[in-house]
Simulated assay, not measured.
Amino acid sequence: MAKTTDGGRAPVPQRLLAAATRLFAERGYDKTSVQEIVEAAGVTKGALYHYFGSKDDLLHEIYGRVLRLQQERLDAIARSDAPVEKRLREAAADVVVTSIENLDDATIFMRSIHQLSPEKDKQVRAERRRYHEKFRALVEEGQKAGVFSTATPADLVVDYHFGSVHHLSSWYRPDGPLTPEQIADHLADLLLRALRP
C-alpha cells in the first residue's frame, strides 16, 4: 500500500478526500479508480466504503465542503451591519479568494458535475442555488435602496460575476503576476462598477 505524505496521522476521511481531490484533479474523476484512491490514502477499500458509500460520494463531498465554507462566509457577510455596497463587495471578493484557495475542488467540480448521480446532482444544484439567491439578495437590496443601478436585472448581475468565478480554474496559476486577493479585488471592483447608478 502506498504511503501517505502525512505519515498516516490525518483522520482517514481527510486522507481519503485529499487523495481523491489530488487524483481527480490530475487524472479526472472517470479515470481514477477506487483502488488508486485507497492506495494513495494508505487505507483499505473497507475504510473508504465506511466513510463514503461510493466514489460518487467522494466527488459530492469535495464540492460540498467548499460550498459550505462559502455559504457560511456569505451568511456572515450578509448579516453584518455594513452598508450594502461594502457587503456585496466583500462577498464578491470572498467567493473569488475561496475558489482560488480551493482550485482543485473547483476544477474537479466544473469537469465532473455531470458524473454525479441524479440525486447528488440535484442536491448540489439546490446548494448552489441557495448560495446564488443569498448573493442576489444583496444586489436586490442595493437596487431597492437606490445604491445600485436597476438597469441590469439582479439575476444577470449574479450570472456575470459567477461566470468569472467559474472560469478561474481554466486560467489561474499560483505563479502568475496577481495574488488571489488582487484578482478578487479586480473582479469585485468590476462588479461594483457595473452596478454603479
Rank of each mutant, 00 (worst) to 15 (best):
M1F: 12
K3G: 03
T5A: 13
T5G: 11
G8Q: 10
G8A: 11
Q14E: 14
L16Y: 07
A18K: 07
A19D: 02
A20N: 12
L23G: 08
L23F: 11
F24H: 09
A25G: 07
A25C: 04
A25W: 01
Y29T: 08
D30P: 06
S33Y: 09
V34D: 00
V34A: 07
V34Q: 02
Q35M: 09
I37N: 05
I37V: 12
I37W: 06
V38W: 02
V38L: 07
A41Y: 02
G42N: 05
V43M: 05
V43Q: 04
K45Y: 01
K45V: 00
G46D: 01
G46I: 07
A47Q: 07
L48H: 09
L48W: 04
Y49A: 08
H50D: 06
H50P: 12
Y51L: 05
S54G: 11
S54N: 10
S54K: 12
S54Y: 02
K55H: 11
L58Q: 06
I62N: 01
Y63H: 07
G64S: 13
G64P: 05
G64D: 06
R65H: 06
R65M: 09
R68H: 11
R68A: 14
Q71S: 14
A76S: 12
I77Q: 00
I77N: 00
A78Y: 03
R79P: 01
R79C: 13
R79K: 11
D81S: 15
A82S: 11
P83M: 09
L88V: 15
L88A: 08
A91K: 01
A91Y: 00
A91L: 03
A92V: 13
A93S: 11
V95Y: 00
V95E: 00
V95S: 06
T98N: 01
T98L: 01
S99E: 00
L103K: 06
D104A: 15
T107Y: 03
I108C: 05
I108G: 01
M110I: 15
M110W: 01
R111I: 14
R111Q: 08
S112H: 07
H114L: 08
S117H: 01
S117I: 13
P118K: 04
K120Y: 03
D121G: 13
A126T: 13
A126K: 13
E127D: 08
R129S: 10
R129L: 15
R130A: 15
Y131G: 13
V139Y: 02
E140Q: 10
G142M: 07
K144C: 15
K144L: 12
F148Y: 10
F148E: 06
F148C: 15
T152E: 04
P153E: 08
P153I: 14
A154R: 02
D155L: 07
D155M: 05
V158K: 02
V158F: 10
D159C: 09
D159S: 03
Y160T: 13
Y160F: 12
H161R: 12
F162T: 11
G163H: 05
G163W: 04
S164F: 05
S164A: 10
L168C: 14
S170D: 09
W171C: 12
Y172I: 14
R173H: 03
P174I: 15
G176W: 02
G176D: 03
G176K: 03
L178D: 07
T179M: 08
T179H: 10
P180I: 14
A184L: 11
D185Q: 05
H186D: 07
L187T: 11
L187G: 15
A188W: 01
D189Q: 08
D189V: 15
L192W: 03
R193F: 05
R193C: 12
L195F: 07
